[in-house]
Design a protein around this nucleic acid. Structure first.
Lengths: 241, 241
DNA sequence: ATGTCAAGAACGAACGTTCGTTCTCATCAC
DNA sequence: GTGATGAGAACGAACGTTCGTTCTTGACAT
């Protein structure tokens, strides 16, 4: 990044304030929180910025959110904010870094469940029931979209994704060895499918927030079960829709 | 609105044609087309704008693309461009409108195939093999992301999506009546699943363009077949991976 | 053939706004 | 004092858009 030349600082009084409200722009965005709560100001400033940024990016997207909005939401001035993060991009990258921890705790449900498919369904339920304080549910699609064209972000994002995919692959192979999954199935194709379903559901959540995905998880899990079950075993159908 | 003072126009001789490419800005983006091809300038100007916008939005996203970039790519000045579209938003909406036609032709593959699952696989193959001049493959995720927060765009987008989903639902129910699909399956869950898989694969394509999704379609189609096949029929496995 | 001229397409500098960022300066703890 | 912290005005660049002007075209008169 080219270092910007130091700016001269002319004392010009300028045009006072251009008070005419100007009817606002076409921007159909939500209102940022009025002002930070009193004890809010005591919390770790980095956390405050991150939480504020997550809220704003979720509401208006990365490019649709201005730093001033993040500042307002965090109850902090730009001068203070820039003390903790060197740039807007650094904030997203920090958010993605946080995702890693959240995803790791999600993955515990995979190994903790009675079976592979049950584990996937449990992950899905945790994601969509809101029981998990999880950034990626709301921000995942936004982050993927941004990652697809921001190389720095993409590198971080890929790291986190690879951890997730590897864990699922290990669980898949183990389940296959246990006879829970048809041994003839191609692992790569199955993983692409599982990833696609996950990403697709996350996106659907954004587009249709009223869709009761958590409630549908048994039915969706049942479908996934049929997809992977060994060929000549009748599907367990413990949760037929 | 404060009437802007009329601008003086000084008869400056100017640089004739300004064909110098201008080396572009610091924007870490791809290079816009050097200059419009000779016969390119003869084409329908609306089409030129649309094609240029699709290229730019695909490269840098909706908010990441400036109107000047679109102008450069289209080989057209801002003044000319704004003769054909009243705003940046109107351009996206026109693109989504075009999607409708493209999707309709995609849907023909559903009804033209030998069965429902084969139809889905054919759609997938057409999408990912590049044989279809289809905007949504590259721009779909970008549009969904934008639609999730732009109400005007969302309305248009929902229209197009509803047409797609309805057509798939009809095909699903018909296949179920034909005995091709397990009659016990919940139609709503199946449709959510099909949509999620489609959206998820489109997103994956953006994130990992090198992944040979078209080649994987037989394997993926096979998985979908297992998911929907009637319970006590052994899966046709004509294309076991 | 040549000149005239209106219509409208295209141009591109400039506009007002908003962006991400940085500045100066006040405040506090020690 | 001194160093860390924060506020908030200000900066310059870039944004989407506008608009006075120029260029292109082709019908018509000569």
């Amino acid at each position: 990044m080219p270092a910007p030349a130091p700016r001269a600082r002319a004392a010009l009084p300028k045009t006072a304030g251009s008070r005419a409200a100007k009817a606002s722009g076409a921007k159909a965005a939500g209102t940022p929180a009025p002002v930070a709560a009193p004890q809010e100001a005591r919390r770790d400033p980095r956390r405050r910025v991150l939480d504020a940024a997550i809220a704003c990016f979720t509401r208006s997207g990365f490019h649709g959110t201005s730093m001033h909005e993040v500042c307002t939401e965090a109850g902090m001035s730009p001068g203070a904010l820039y003390r903790y993060f060197p740039s807007k991009e650094a904030i997203i990258i920090a958010i993605v870094e946080e995702e890693r921890a959240a995803r790791a705790s999600l993955l515990e449900r995979l190994d903790g469940a009675t079976g592979f498919v049950e584990g996937l369904a449990a992950m899905g339920h945790a994601l969509f029931s809101g029981e998990m304080p999880m950034v990626c549910v709301e921000l995942g699609p936004e982050i993927s979209a941004e990652a697809s064209r921001n190389p720095v972000l993409k590198a971080k994002f890929d790291e986190v994704e690879a951890e997730m995919t590897d864990a699922i692959r290990r669980a898949f192979v183990a389940a296959q060895a246990r006879g829970e999954i048809d041994p003839a199935l191609d692992t790569d194709a199955a993983l692409v499918m599982i990833n696609a379903i996950g990403d697709g559901l996350l996106l659907r959540r954004r587009l249709e927030p009223e869709l009761p995905l958590a409630q549908m998880m048994p039915a969706l899990g049942h479908l996934i079960g049929r997809m992977f079950a060994p060929a000549h075993r009748s599907v367990p159908s413990d949760k037929a829709p």
